[in-house]
């Protein structure tokens, strides 16, 4: 079929362009303007040039937070993507179990982020929390308030609990769209369970997996509310991720210029990594 080119169709995206301009582009421009100036409030600004960027790039605090964030995102993707696929593969495809599973899976996604943080903050407490108290009763020396390892485990388990459902629902949507004919052909060929997964289900889930990886990477790299509510970035700075550090810098220390420079570096890194993920996965898809 021959494609029809009509550039007037671009006018159709004008409304969304206006919306994005007000919600993203204009605020981003303001952040760029702030990043090259210093201010003490009252809309009075002093030119600083690239000083804030230099300060950020030479700051141990920034690179440590970046390292923590990258490790956190890597752990989250390593756990949530395979676990999400595994759960989606084992969910019922027909019958009364389907709506029950879908509702159960959607529940964690419906809870606001700060409420999730509060739930886990209480859940993990060793005096009144079910998790903390039980672990203590079983002989584990668990205390997320003063042990960095326990704080990390708590934040990771909380994120897995909150967001694996998203991966499950996306994979499930990919799985139910596979026509029965594929499975029948596989059965005739005597394909093993692994072969069906590797050559039918996984390729058919490729698109939704791309979305799942991108969403989970971006969300985990920008995570703020849940760890802030549970650990407040502590103990010490061990769970201070970039966004928590950014808020400390901008609101806690009212260092708006440096915070703006940090936001831009943070934004560029997210954009680069998202582009790499997207390109690698779409190139892999095109090869197939």
């Amino acid at each position: 079929m021959e494609r029809t080119w009509n550039n007037k169709a671009w006018f159709m995206v004008l409304p969304v362009l206006l919306l994005v301009a007000f919600s993203a582009i204009i605020p981003l421009m303001t952040v760029v303007n702030y990043s090259v100036q210093d201010t003490f409030g009252n809309n009075v600004f002093f030119w600083a040039g690239a000083e804030w960027f230099e300060e950020i790039l030479h700051s141990d605090r920034f690179w440590e937070a970046m390292g923590r964030n990258l490790v956190f995102s890597a752990i989250i993707l390593t756990i949530e993507i395979p676990l999400g696929i595994f759960i989606a593969l084992n969910m019922p495809k027909k019958g009364w179990g389907v709506p029950v599973c879908l509702v159960l899976m959607a529940l964690p996604l419906l809870i606001p982020w700060n409420v999730v943080g509060t739930i886990w903050q209480v859940f993990g407490r060793v005096d009144i929390g079910l998790l903390g108290y039980t672990l203590r009763a079983l002989g584990f020396n668990y205390n997320y308030v003063n042990d960095p390892f326990d704080a990390w485990i708590t934040v990771i388990v909380m994120d897995v609990w909150h967001w694996t459902s998203l991966v499950v629902l996306l994979c499930y949507a990919g799985l139910v769209s596979i026509p029965d004919a594929y499975y029948q052909a596989a059965k005739i060929d005597g394909a093993s369970r692994w072969a069906i997964f590797r050559y039918i289900q996984l390729p058919k889930m490729n698109r939704v997996l791309l979305i799942a990886v991108l969403l989970r990477f971006m969300d985990s790299f920008m995570i703020y509310t849940e760890p802030f509510v549970v650990t407040g970035g502590g103990p010490g700075n061990t769970t201070t991720f970039l966004s928590i550090d950014l808020v400390k810098l901008a609101i806690g220390e009212f260092n708006l210029g440096e915070a703006a420079a940090m936001s831009i570096v943070y934004f560029l890194i997210i954009m680069l990594l998202s582009w790499v993920f997207y390109t690698v996965m779409t190139a892999y898809d095109a090869e197939r």
């Binding site: 421009m29 303007n33 100036q37």
Partner: peptide, 15 residues
């Protein structure tokens, strides 16, 4: 537009 804290170099950049 003073709240946007425009400067000449950033305006040139965006233009």
């Amino acid at each position: 537009l003073t709240w946007m804290a425009w400067t000449l170099p950033t305006a040139v950049f965006f233009i």
